[in-house]
Design a protein around this nucleic acid. Structure first.
Lengths: 276, 276
DNA sequence: CGGCATTTTGACAATCGTCAATCAGTGTGG
DNA sequence: CCACACTGATTGACGATTGTCAAAATGCCG
């Protein structure tokens, strides 16, 4: 199975074999995390960067009456807190939605990747900008669509995002998220989510077999949700990646052996990364 | 009057006098743009980066039934489309909400700033990450707060953001945004916005004199809105800016007198920038 | 003053939330 | 294998928030 993280970065910038190799090394060790566990909490200044390898996690905040709002889904290949060091402390929390596999990348590793691998650096900024575009689309979803289209839109987005990392078929994916969590995502009550889901099922748009979501007619669902995938920026465009070459002297390629040494050393030295 | 753009960037990274000088120079010429004009449209691959100098603009998308959703406010000091070159084409549009003064920065200028002025580069990424944090808070606002608190929250955010660029007093600012636009911002109808505004006024929380918004009791409004400003990352933290020193010699400070010279020269040399 | 955009009002309808009970699925211990 | 507990899904009755429509009032600018 291809590494979802690498699949994802490849859409942001052209990577060399060496880049891929470095990335493979960096994400060797994953840890299991149970469902509904905080990975990072608001106010933290985390030392590790978390990479989701399996399962779904989310960014969320809690408001005073105890209600929760989810602002983003983190699926395999997504990094959790890449650039917090620029902002300082976390202004929101991150938690698993179901049992997950998570890699804890030491900040030093990330800094090495961004400073010494310009293509990877560019790809990491690319994912940051795509995350921002997704946030904007979510605002549209919350503000200007009725509940049924909101939900349909979310399901379409996840289909595309999971397909892009090889975790969805043409029309289905594993979706183990609670109806209450869906409510916290879309700003709805779980009761209403339930009713809308039933509606979508009885309209034949989707089917649920256990944790498996099947979209019976992808085009029809997309149309219903007014889903335009442009904000995911999944299409690779030659124009944009041509600039990659300019970022650093091409000769840096030759330094690759030492990079690998650094990584191996860091992997060997470190006790297996531990959650908080 | 201090340049709002520079005031803003100074919160993201410590700048040298030379950095400031370069920035001053870059934003000399502004153009007037009327209310309700598109600066950039979805699908564009803009050549210029737009900097708002006066007035309010917004990011928005339109959905099929013609409704509009605003995803972000751009206030003086905000850049519009800084990193589109990484993503490719615009996935949303940007328009003025009222008459604005806008600087059209050629992409080449921005590239010079980011490549040759590391502090400015860091500051520009900082503003990008803050924008992302604001998007997240807006999702919370839209999803989990009733209309009156949504509106109060927005007003609090704008108070802080405008204060941070010297465009708001302790408790008031110029706010020339239509109630329909507020509706498009918060996902409400303009009728409901109207009623909520009246409510806030009769509760004595805010006052509106023409285009001037006065917040009678800032603390009370913040409490009502559950406003926590942490997501704006306005506090300067020593920890983060310590690294800045490494980049250049401190002695550059002495160059400040020449700033005016540079300004005058550039005013004489450059033809006025033109919108696309 | 006249025209136009914006704000304000009222009546009514639709969406969605709340509460509380029931049902279904899953895992555990005896 | 079954009783039990627990979480999540489902249902119904009812209420609250917010939207829609259409008209009237107000404010602004030339």
């Amino acid at each position: 199975m291809l590494n979802p993280f690498i699949m994802k970065l490849e859409r942001g910038a052209r990577l060399t074999d060496e880049d891929r190799q470095v990335l493979e090394e960096a994400v060797l060790r994953s840890q299991h995390v149970g469902a509904r566990k905080d990975l990072i909490h608001e106010g933290d200044v985390p030392d590790n960067v978390h990479l989701i390898v399996k399962g779904f996690a989310c960014r969320y905040k809690t408001v005073s009456d105890g209600q929760r709002q989810i602002m983003a889904y983190l699926v395999p290949g997504d990094l959790c807190d890449l650039h917090v060091s620029i902002l300082g402390e976390m202004d929101h929390s991150i938690a698993t939605l179901c049992p997950c596999e998570v890699v804890y990348l030491p900040r030093a590793t990330i800094e090495d990747l961004t400073e010494n691998h310009s293509r990877i650096n560019r790809a990491l900024w690319w994912v940051t900008l795509v995350d921002e575009a997704i946030l904007r689309e979510w605002i549209v979803n919350m503000g200007r669509r009725p509940a049924d289209r909101k939900l349909a839109h979310l399901l379409c987005e996840l289909l595309m995002r999971l397909q892009s990392v090889g975790l969805a078929t043409e029309n289905s994916y594993e979706f183990s998220v609670t109806q209450a969590d869906l409510g916290d995502t879309l700003g709805l009550s779980s009761v209403h989510v339930n009713r809308v889901l039933q509606q979508l099922r009885s309209d034949g748009l989707i089917g649920l077999k256990g944790r498996n979501l099947i979209i019976n007619d992808v085009e029809r669902l997309k149309e219903f949700a007014e889903f335009n995938p442009n904000y995911l920026h999944l299409k690779r465009r030659e124009r944009d990646r041509s600039g990659d070459e300019a970022v650093g002297p091409a000769g840096v390629r030759e330094s690759s052996p030492s990079v690998m040494d650094v990584l191996k050393r860091s992997l060997a030295d470190r006790p297996p990364a531990k959650p908080e």
